[in-house]
């Protein structure tokens, strides 16, 4: 298996989490808009599968995406829950649950990066 650069993987995940956060923000802001269908970003596993070849390369270029969604697909979710008569499918509780997940993952992500950065610096100091 190709060695994976931890910092690049963490950077990609934090981008994904940020895009998910903005999708959640859009859903919550539009919770009362008629006809608005809740949206979510594609799962991170799919992103990894797609990028399996390029992630292990040391190219920083593909991380510098200017577009807000950074190349992740943000699509309308299939509605498993209730659809209001107005056509709105946003369930506030689910959105807040997702936001909690994003927060936990993000905290773990930054903690890991901080720790490995510190280890790297300590190891490299002569």
């Amino acid at each position: 298996m190709e060695p994976v650069n931890l910092f690049e993987l963490a950077a990609r995940q934090s981008q994904w989490l940020s895009v998910r956060q903005s999708a959640i923000a859009g859903n919550i802001a539009n919770a009362n808009t008629p006809g608005y269908v809740a949206r979510d970003v594609e799962p991170f596993e799919k992103v990894l599968d797609r990028a399996a070849v390029s992630l292990s390369a040391t190219q920083a270029g593909h991380l510098g995406d200017a577009a807000t969604n950074a190349g992740f697909a943000v699509k309308q979710e299939e509605t498993t829950g209730s659809i209001l008569p107005s056509g709105n499918t946003v369930v506030l509780e689910n959105e807040l649950l997702k936001a909690g997940e994003v927060r936990r993952s993000f905290e773990l992500n930054t903690a890991i990066v901080k720790a490995f950065h510190a280890m790297m610096m300590a190891a490299v100091k002569s």
Binding site: Q15, Q21, S22, I24, A25, I28, A29, N30, T68
Partner: peptide
């Protein structure tokens, strides 16, 4: 994206 989220929530 995070700044965009702030803007969206502020509009809400």
């Amino acid at each position: 994206a995070l700044t965009a989220a702030l803007k969206v929530a502020a509009s809400g």
